[in-house]
Amino acid sequence: MEDEVRKRIAEMLDSGEVTAVIALKDVLGMTTPCVFKKGDDLSSLRLSPHYPLATLAMKMHKMDPEYKIAILCRGCDERALLEMAKRNQIDMDKLSIIGIACDEETAKDCNCSVPYPSCEDLIGEKLEELELGDAFEDYKRMSTAEKLEFWKKQFEKCNKCYGCRNICQMCFCKDCELENELWLKKGRLPPDFPVYHLIRAFHLAGKCVGCGECESACPAGIPLMTINRLLRDDMKELFDYVVGNTEEVNPLYTKEEF
């Protein structure tokens, strides 16, 4: 799979279709995001672990909107790019996608129902019918009081490092409400229950692409994706909205009745 990607990248750079390719590479045994240009050695290219590369593409696009970039793209990365495009953060016409499909293990790890991008020349096997099961079965059986107890324990571990926000592909606001002293006093640890996490969860409703980066970035190991996924299901149930579709706007931003 890696060789196939290398071939594709080399073709794109040599033909001049794109000037740079955003991908991952191996540096001294560690994987890091990087930008490949024409003539670069592609042998150090890596495909895993997954990393939010869409943020890099957005930042590069903002620096120079005319720059032609290609990006290594998983299902979640593509959803992130589409949501960014809807919010005028990136121009999809200036972007080429090298789509790679996730394997079964990764997809199950992320509880991802669409572990592949929608592009035609996909690299890797497309997993369309994946048995995921209900990951929240135990959680949903809890009573209201038990849920509160559960989250109280989880959120108490938070040391307000903002890691979940910083790694998030969909957190691109210039002014973040989580830094507003109106809602969250500075210097208070753990942050007031449940303000920090509820504000973040609510702001990500209809935005969260389900990449799971916040959860893996959290040093305290708070199961942040649980709440994001629950809200994702609610968005589907209440407004029939699925993150990553190309046309629909997040119903929370529109005036239409439901």
Binding site: L148, F202, L238, K255, E256
Partner: peptide
């Protein structure tokens, strides 16, 4: 209309958290 949608979703969220 905007309020309605926002509150419907927020109700779900506070329910998930145990309120």
């Amino acid at each position: 209309y905007r309020t309605k949608k926002r509150i419907d979703l927020l109700k779900r969220l506070i329910e998930h958290i145990g309120i």
